[in-house]
Design a binder for these strands. Structure first.
Length: 422
DNA sequence: ACTCCACAGGAATTGAGGGGTG
DNA sequence: CACCCCTCAATTCCTGTGGAGT
């Protein structure tokens, strides 16, 4: 059997389960979609719609609903004799400045793009308003996806909703749709921005088990060969996912991994057992992806903590992590960062869910300090670390190398305490 | 109720790296 | 070319603080 066989007896067209796949029909989420469509429908009467703020966790259908509804809007608006331009920008990992440039480039021709750096902020803002004023359509819908990931909130969000009042925009009627994964984002906005940006709010709740079942069944029909899914499979995946995140994305990933597992083992049907493996696989991929986004220094820090964890000295305070991290960095020949930088990074790792942080205060004798421990199994982290290959080659064993380093570190750092045992 | 420890975490700053304009 | 702008990682400086011991 070749590596890329086409005659798979389990999977028919797995791409239906990929993130990149956009289905043309949308199952579930009817209420939200009605609300959404309704909010934009005033264009038919030539009235500028109110700005829309959409929120809900990842994988609950926000982006897909937006895409489908806006496609329909562009099409239907012809019947109403209105032209609508849609511009979509993802704000993930961008500052206001970057996002503004993305909007400009989105509106410009391919040959006329500007660079991400170099211009002063005022110039960039002016360019954006020029572009927006320059479009031919009567209405423009500007979708700001992942708006909560915008690095510095005020800039762009302050400019845009108020641009009309300030006289920066003329004929074009700009409507903003902000999409956020974070519920608290809205409350953190300045009242002024909040009231303009969130004129209409649409909340997408996490999917419930039953809804996930219909989504999975819908996709599975095209993705798998008929009749290969064990009866309990989809309900099982749906139930597990509903308890965890309620994300259709996650559920589909698990289903796909279960399918892979079944084909890999030449099974005839995809079973709940395969799904269990799938769940682990998805979790591992998640860690791997997030790990890939971390710097080498971040890997070093996690490695240090994983070793403490393996040694059974579970929550470790920053001071100790730092002392050991320093030795690791020297051993591997990397820069040694200052204590403050390490603290900052540890807190970032906690925010990303790699570590969990607890504050300890032992009063007069010791004051206050932070303790960290891994928020995942250290064995799993070690595997990913080896496969990732930043600190180690595939054939090396991080555990073995580290154990030795930790042991020698502990013996030089407190040899007074240790001497009484020898 | 007050003290006082050991550190947390914010602010300000720097320096390298990206790239603009005239 | 000289000079300017934005970003990002990291550093130093410094003020803030929770609660056991008194």
């Amino acid at each position: 059997m070749g590596m890329f066989t086409t005659g798979n007896s389990i999977l028919d067209d797995e791409s239906v389960l990929f993130e990149s796949y956009t289905p043309d029909t949308f199952v579930e989420r009817e209420e939200e979609r009605d609300e959404y469509t309704h909010a934009l429908s005033s264009i038919a009467r030539d009235v500028k719609p109110r700005n829309i703020f959409v929120y809900g966790r990842t994988g609950v259908g926000k982006s897909l609903a937006t895409e489908i509804i806006l496609d329909a809007l562009v099409e239907e608006s012809q019947e109403w004799d209105q032209d609508v331009a849609v511009t979509r920008v993802s704000c993930e990992g961008k500052s206001s400045y970057d996002a503004t440039i993305s909007i400009i480039n989105e509106l410009r021709d391919d040959g006329d793009q500007i660079s991400n750096t170099g211009y002063r902020t005022a110039t960039v803002n002016e360019m954006m308003f020029d572009e927006i004023n320059g479009i031919d359509e009567d209405y423009m819908v500007l979708v700001l996806d992942e708006i909560d990931k915008l690095g510095d909130s005020p800039g762009l969000l302050y400019q845009l909703p108020r641009a009309r009042d300030e006289g920066n925009l003329d004929d074009t009627k700009v409507n903003i749709i902000g999409i956020s994964n974070d519920f608290t984002f809205r409350e953190e906005l300045e009242p002024k921005i909040q009231s303009t940006l969130c004129e209409t709010e649409i909340r997408f709740a996490p999917y419930e088990s039953q809804e996930l079942i219909s989504i999975l069944e819908d996709r599975a029909e095209d993705a798998f060969v008929d009749g290969v899914l064990e009866e309990d499979l989809i309900p099982y995946i749906a139930a597990r996912t509903a308890q965890d995140t309620g994300s259709a994305r996650q559920a589909m990933d698990i289903l796909l991994e279960a399918g892979h597992e079944a084909s890999k083992t030449d099974a005839e049907r995809v079973t709940v057992e395969h799904a269990k493996t799938g769940i682990q696989e998805v979790e591992k991929n998640r860690i791997m992806n997030e790990l890939r986004d971390l710097t080498l220094q971040g890997h070093l820090m996690l490695y240090a903590i994983a070793l403490f964890e393996e040694n059974g000295t579970s929550p470790v305070r920053r001071k100790e992590i730092y002392a050991f991290y320093k030795k690791l960095a020297e051993h591997f020949g990397y820069d040694v960062n200052s204590g403050k930088t390490v603290l900052k990074r540890l807190n970032e790792l906690s925010a990303n869910g790699f570590l969990s942080l607890s504050q300890i205060n032992i009063g007069r004798q010791g004051g206050r300090h932070n303790q960290y421990e891994m928020d995942m199994k250290h064995e799993r982290f070690m595997t990913v670390l080896r496969e990732e290959g930043t600190l180690f080659d595939e054939d090396e064993q991080p555990e073995r190398v580290g154990k030795k380093l930790l042991r020698s570190h502990l013996s030089d750092s407190d040899n007074q305490d240790l001497s009484q045992f020898q």
